[in-house]
Design a protein around this nucleic acid. Structure first.
Length: 102
DNA sequence: CTGCTGATTGTTTGT
DNA sequence: ACAAACAATCAGCAG
């Protein structure tokens, strides 16, 4: 039984308001982002002139259409991107510590 | 120790 | 510049 995850997001609105972190270490991207970067061209190429709504949906379908192996490269990228985020977090931690020290 | 939540990431298109 | 569908994420916090 999947837990009803009511994901309510408002994009930038959150970053603008809700002040949580001093330097906000923004996490890394997600497999979808890398996958979209490659597929977006392919999808639009097969669906010339389709609107964002169609592309977005079709894109998602294709994403899952891939096997774990196909997503592997994207997940791998996501993993690497996450590492990048780790660096931000590191700086964020250092800064937070410094601030505390100060 | 475990799980939940929130914030975030990038694409497309349109105004 | 931002809004939403599309999907992943996953880090930090709390009981």
């Amino acid at each position: 039984m999947p837990k009803e995850k009511v994901q309510k997001r408002a994009t930038k609105a959150r970053a603008e308001k809700k002040k949580k972190d001093p330097n906000a270490p923004k996490r890394g991207l997600s497999a979808y982002m890398f996958f979209a970067n490659e597929q977006r061209e392919n999808v639009r190429d097969e669906n010339p002139g389709i609107s964002f709504g169609q592309v977005g949906k079709v894109l998602g379908e294709r994403w899952k259409a891939l096997n774990d192996k196909q997503r592997a490269p994207y997940e791998a990228k996501a993993a690497q991107d996450k590492k990048r985020y780790e660096d931000e977090k590191a700086s964020y931690n250092a800064e937070a510590e410094e601030e505390e020290s100060s």
